[in-house]
Design a protein around this nucleic acid. Sequence first.
DNA 1: GGAACTCGCCAC
DNA 2: AAACGTGGCGAGTTCC
Length: 459
Amino acid sequence: MKNKATTADAYKLMHDGALALARAERQGIRVDLKYCERKKKHLNRKIERHQKELKHTKLYKLWERIYGAKTNIYSNHQLARLLYKTMKIEPRKLTPTGEGSTDEDALRQIDLPGVQLILNVRKLTKVRDTYLSAFTRDQHDGYIHPSFDLHTVRTYRSSSANPNFQNIPKRDKESMRICRRALLPRPGHMLLEADFAALEVMISACYHKDPVMLQYLKDKDADMHSDMAKQIFMLDDLDRSAPTHNKLRTAAKNGFVFPQFYGDYYGNNAASLAEWAELNYGRWGDGKKGVILPDGQTISAHLSSRGIKSFQKFEDHIKSVEDDFWGRRFKVYNNWRDKWVSKYRRSGRLQMLTGFVCSGALRRNEIINYPIQGTAFHCLLFTFIELDRIAIQEQWESKLIGQIHDSILLDVAPEELKHVEATLKNIVKKTLPAAWDWIIVPLEIDVDSYEVDGPWIAA
DNA sequence: GGAACTCGCCAC
DNA sequence: AAACGTGGCGAGTTCC
């Protein structure tokens, strides 16, 4: 659009989006019901075995002495009292209300027989009760119909419910396989997933127009996360094909770059990076544990040789990396953040490039994140609407069946695969940038297809 | 007996 | 100066 987007433009996108998403809801996603029932029984047996083993531990016996017939291993309240009151263990972490936390991170630091069994049971019941049971409970004639709402989220993103299609396990490979094995294409079809590449970072650049960031996004050989890994871990070069170097790149990406973009700070980053890179700051530099560099040295020993001999020193170093990140490397982005926040505080409203408006009492990080998160999703929504329009017009056998913020899931007839893919790429490369002239970055959409008649698991 | 809360945990 | 953005949902617990 030539002129600045208005709330009328936002309204039209929301309205067209609601219609396209309603069609996806009606189509639904095929569920392997027999598999779900079989797997739930299998999980029941596994959970029972863990519970039986747990009952033989001292931990459980003490638990029963205190709670008697009320003893419930699924009660975190009971567990917190047991560990932090009765056994007087010092809580490693507190919940928002100030109670001792019993989340995975806190429990993993407690070396007691039985604690690991509780974590095992939690993971298996999560998969059984939140996913497999939801699929069988919410299905009709072998299809689930997750709802996709556009009116529930403060940033004007979407939400999904009944069941939530936007939080099915992916990172944990075991949980991923168990849950995604249950979701199938229609007979003779294949699932296809199309993801925007680094969409939120791309959209942030449309707001702040930082030249250094724009260069990273336009130059296919440039890699922000590798550069940050080199700086954070004091490496002269980084070879992404070397597994340990790649691990450090992932550490930089998930432990520093993304959290910084969301408004986090060096204090949390240092702890998170230490986890990701397995820094042994308890026995700093003893060269026995942690990520091993290609030259055989541990990352901790390497940092130690560069003067980072304690966790405190590491944190100081990360502070200087942060100062450099915003003060030198991405200083235009940083100036935009300050200007954007002060503009919001003057006017009481923020207007997205897509015309959506947010107002109310917002904190600094919210003011900065909302436009990026919302606008990124609107690129997905535009693509979804346009693809759906073409699918109707050309009477495709292939169907749009779901959406996860920056990706679309389709149920595709194999003979239409190439055409669907080409249509998607054309929308993202041509239609979308022509419709919204504020898009000043090369948007890309990556397409992954799964086996014919196969579940939602990468081959 | 149900609403509202807390906690933990899954996704982007 | 302060310090991680957005959701949904299951289970336990508390309140009315």
